[in-house]
Design a protein around this nucleic acid. Structure first.
Lengths: 250, 250
DNA sequence: CCTATGCTTTCCGGTGAGCGGAAGTGAGGT
DNA sequence: ACCTCACTTCCGCTCACCGGAAAGCATAGG
């Protein structure tokens, strides 16, 4: 059904860039997008002319400053991030552990921000990265409050296993989701990496709709995860009460 | 010269979004871009389908999470910003004043980051915004080390006056640029706003090429601006020494 | 030196995606 | 009921897009 329109191809080319591929040659982009080389050549050339892409002297393409600029000034991610930042910093100051902020996009969680210091566990997520929602703390929180169709669609597909602790049985995940809704927080124990536990809580806008989730990720076994519940929930509530009116997605 | 290609129109539509216009209706975009309504309708529809734009229930378009994501994971702005952040924080901690990081793009300065606290002067720039280079502290630093053609082009055009202190005579600006190169810093006195003075210094990569500028913006008359020269230059040098190899623009 | 390899750029003719005026829909206001 | 303003759908013309072919342009190996 995806007709090969120019706009679609532009989107495809831009989407070829991610954390692992932030600089690519022409033919690398062509390979990754499965588009004809000539076509990519024309598109990248035009995108570069408009500043959406840049090219260094090694002939490597990168995302252009212009595109960063547009995204930085105008996105809903930025509003949420800015509103939450002071409270995330406070949460970091009291826990000295990784602090994360994420929202739901489609069937995945997108990480908007992460604070971490030298003492924190090393974790995989970076701002701008995506993870499935069935395993991580923030993911479970977001899924628990997502529309029922989203939940069904996520749980209908096979659930990826990250560690031997990852829950991949849809029924058990559903039970967890019910717990999250009842308790107002969740503890995800070594489901993403075997070294870390995360404690997450929902952030709501004025209408009490869940729009984001905040979590703390700590080294397993160092301290009782339950001791983080109060600060995490507290931060989530503080952010909730300060949120500007957020636009709802249709 | 600008042929009306689809890619160009996509760029135009995306560029219509900025700090002052982060949510627009269809016809608002059409007005701002001077494109036919039908055309904008088609393009925004397609862009939305690919997640580059989003639309809330008020029919307002915004920059999509997908676009933010692409820009966040893959831009040269992000690398520079991340490398500099710890030192910017340190500079903020010691001065408690606005701290800014900017790069040159085309003939303008783009602000990558800003740290400010409750005690800082309120200033106009936000991350992602642009300002001309002939007046601000960071602008003068960037211009002083820009290719000669850029300098000529900037100084050939009429220079915008922001306050009665703004230097708009190209000859005087050129003299200032020479001073910047000699001294390694610049003090811009009330040239942007009548309430503030900025102290700026260049950031260089491994090849000693100037790739960015850092500045502190302080309230005029509160403290001798010269007392900020040492911390600003110190921070700039510290960042310079920690920079990853930055790609050069052709 | 020549040949091979991999990447980039230019060329060009056929064609369907893009175009946008016109007309239709629908929500708010008077 | 009528007007206004914003959005959406329709549809036939046409020009920008398409991509294979082939030519540059380095770097490596024989």
């Amino acid at each position: 059904m995806a007709g090969p329109t120019v706009t679609a191809r532009v989107a495809t080319v831009l989407s070829a860039f991610d954390t692992a591929h932030n600089a690519m040659t022409l033919s690398e982009i062509a390979r990754r997008t499965a588009l004809p080389l000539t076509t990519v050549h024309r598109l990248t050339g035009e995108l570069t002319r408009h500043g959406l892409l840049e090219r260094d002297q090694d002939h490597q393409f990168r995302i252009g400053l212009r595109l960063w600029e547009i995204a930085s000034t105008a996105s809903r991610a930025v509003d949420l991030r800015e509103a939450a930042l002071p409270y995330l910093q406070e949460l970091y100051a009291t826990t000295r552990e990784n602090v994360q902020l994420a929202v739901l996009d489609g069937l995945e969680a997108v990480y908007l921000d992460r604070l971490s210091g030298p003492e924190s566990v090393h974790i995989v997520t970076r701002p701008g990265s995506r993870l499935p929602v069935h395993a991580s703390g923030v993911g479970l929180v977001l899924l628990a409050h997502a529309p029922i169709e989203v939940q069904d669609e996520v749980l209908a597909a096979p659930l990826a296993r990250f560690t031997r602790f990852t829950v991949t049985d849809p029924r058990r995940v559903r039970r967890t989701l019910a717990d999250v809704r009842r308790d107002g927080y969740v503890i995800s124990d070594r489901q993403i990496e075997t070294v870390s536990v995360s404690v997450a809580a929902p952030i709501r806008d004025r209408t009490r709709r869940v729009v984001a989730a905040v979590s703390v990720v700590v080294t397993v076994g160092r301290k009782d995860p339950r001791s983080f519940v109060k600060p995490v929930v507290g931060a989530a509530n503080a952010i909730s009460s300060r949120l500007p009116i957020l636009p709802e997605r249709p």
